[in-house]
């Protein structure tokens, strides 16, 4: 048991620590982000709507959301598959592949962009040129978001020891039934978490898409790059408006994830 004075010191320590942490967080993150939201409506809501509904902004937002959605679907399938192979399969160099999965997190995004341009750009040794095309944007986003679903599904698979699957098999369930009724339901929370993180990342990515996309308005310009252009042309209010839309979407996705996870926990 703690002594009374120790408890009091602990409480005042909490207050001081919390105050300092909040100050740090506010100066770097909260005040700046709040300023973006405030600035976006500083010329009234009409100008906000005007900024986010210019043809260029709409095209950029539509491309960003569409690309992020496709990226999520591909990641859910390929990420789960890779996680499955890393946990249930045995092959030489498994540890190396497992390490490699995190490469997109460690590699600077602009280097990732350069790497992809060298393979899928105009001088591609494979003869595949995706530069200045929407498919190039997709490849860049698939690269940067690759680890999310793998890393959220992998621990769940590791924890499932196969007993349930064996029980189902002994009761005569086919492999497809086992996968659909036993494995997949267990993976849903992991897949959902990975998908939400991948969506948030894909919808906000900038560095990796800059070089390969060529940033052609209405064609390959994603929302981040559109905002960058607005900042460069000194249209801070317009940039703030489109930024606010991106922020709100990212927050909604993460909120949905939080709600879904708590629902899953309560459901057991």
């Amino acid at each position: 048991m703690m002594s009374a004075t120790g408890g009091a010191r602990r409480r005042s320590g909490t207050a001081v620590g919390l105050g300092l942490a909040t100050l740090y967080l506010s100066l770097v993150v909260l005040v700046p982000l709040a300023t973006v939201a405030w600035r976006s409506t500083s010329h009234g809501t009409d100008s906000f709507w005007h900024s986010v509904t210019t043809p260029e902004a709409l095209a950029a937002l539509r491309l960003t959301m569409g690309a992020a959605a496709i990226v999520v679907v591909v990641n859910v399938v390929m990420g789960s598959l890779i996680a499955w192979i890393l946990v249930r399969d045995d092959f030489i160099g498994k540890r190396l592949v497992d390490t490699l999965i995190d490469l997109p997190f460690a590699l600077p995004t602009i280097v990732a962009g350069l790497v992809l341009v060298s393979l899928y750009g105009p001088t591609s040794p494979l003869g595949i040129n995706l530069a200045y095309a929407r498919s190039g944007v997709l490849v860049a986003l698939l690269f940067t978001t690759l680890p999310f679903v793998v890393r959220t599904v992998q621990p769940v698979l590791l924890e499932m020891d196969g007993e349930m699957e064996q029980a189902a098999a002994s009761l005569g369930a086919s492999r497809l039934t086992i996968f659909r009724r036993i494995v997949l339901p267990n993976l849903y929370p992991g897949i959902a978490a990975g998908a939400a993180l991948a969506f948030a990342r894909a919808s906000s990515e900038f560095g990796a898409t800059v070089l390969i996309s060529g940033n052609i308005p209405f064609k390959t310009q994603v929302a981040s790059v559109h905002i960058f252009g607005l900042i460069e042309s000194d249209n801070a209010t317009g940039a703030a408006a489109v930024s606010t839309v991106l922020l709100v979407i990212a927050l909604l996705v993460l909120l949905a994830l939080d709600v879904a996870q708590r629902w899953a926990v309560r459901r057991g």
Partner: peptide
């Protein structure tokens, strides 16, 4: 983690 790097930059410029 949910904020685009460009939005981060803009936010800091605005403050």
């Amino acid at each position: 983690l949910a904020v685009s790097p460009v939005v981060t930059g803009l936010a800091l410029i605005l403050v």
